[in-house]
Amino acid sequence: MTIILFDGLIYASVLAVLCVGLSLTYKITSVPNFAHTSFAILGMYMALIMSKVIGLSVYVALPVAFAASGALALFMYYGIIRILQKKKSSLISLIIATLAFDMFMIGVLNIIADGVRNTYRVNSRDFTLRSLDTVIGGDGGLPLVFIVTIVLLAGLALGLYFLLYRTSFGMSMRGAIENESLAQTLGINTRTIFCFAWFLSGGLAGMAGVLMAMWFQGDPSLAAIMLPSIFAGSIVGGFSSIYGAILGGLLVGLSEVVGTSVLIDLLGYWVIPYRPVIPFIAMIATLLVLPGGLIQLITKYQKRRKTMMRKSKEEEEGDSVGT
């Protein structure tokens, strides 16, 4: 049971971190990035290289993966997406470009995997770094990666809140997302802000990839396998909401792990391979029933409150400016 708990919580948290990045770039660029998971796989291989090839602690890979995957995301935004947007390409062209970049990265990541195996004689497919992790309290105790994952997600949620709501840079960022040209006329360099956001999104995905490899398995094929799950998480949360993404990611992640284990009890082991269908169902159901995602339910309530506030205020003051 504890294994399912660890599995579920680690997977769900990793998914939530990935969903946050996906939603962040979607909010900014209005393009669903089908190459987002490849940032995570790059992180996985950074972990493999740092630990098995160079021989450092696997946790050293966290900042390295952050930098490497962040740089990759930045390259993708600055070198491809922005150029296409400048050329006024259609949304579909942009989506195809992200798919193309994903294909490109499948090639790159597999070449890295083959290269590591052939050059250093290190297993680079379906590898796991779980044995390298520290377990607190000896066998059957608390694995460190579990704590790190939870701390990363919590830190991300708090950090983003602090950044977006307590710093003027974050306010500029929110402003630039809401209304880019207004932000520009007010002297904000929106390009820098968007580049930062893409870097952050890629970097977070890279760290998520390191954590994945430390508990589950690492393999280039995971890019395609995990993609539906993170899209499902983001969409279930409401695609353009950061906190919705955390909620959706956790929900989809847990329902994948826990839901499958419940279904095994009910129906037998044959259901295991159909686990990937769970996020699809969650996603399609959300799109058809509640296209705005879970966050829509929350904001609907908030909006109603806001309009009520505004109405009562206007009744008090009329539409006057001065007093």
């Binding site: 709501y165 929110r174 402003g175 932000a183």
Partner: peptide, 13 residues
């Protein structure tokens, strides 16, 4: 910026 408070709007600048 509609979603920002007045203070946040000014803080942007």
């Amino acid at each position: 910026f509609q979603d920002l408070t007045l203070r946040e709007n000014l803080a942007v600048v």
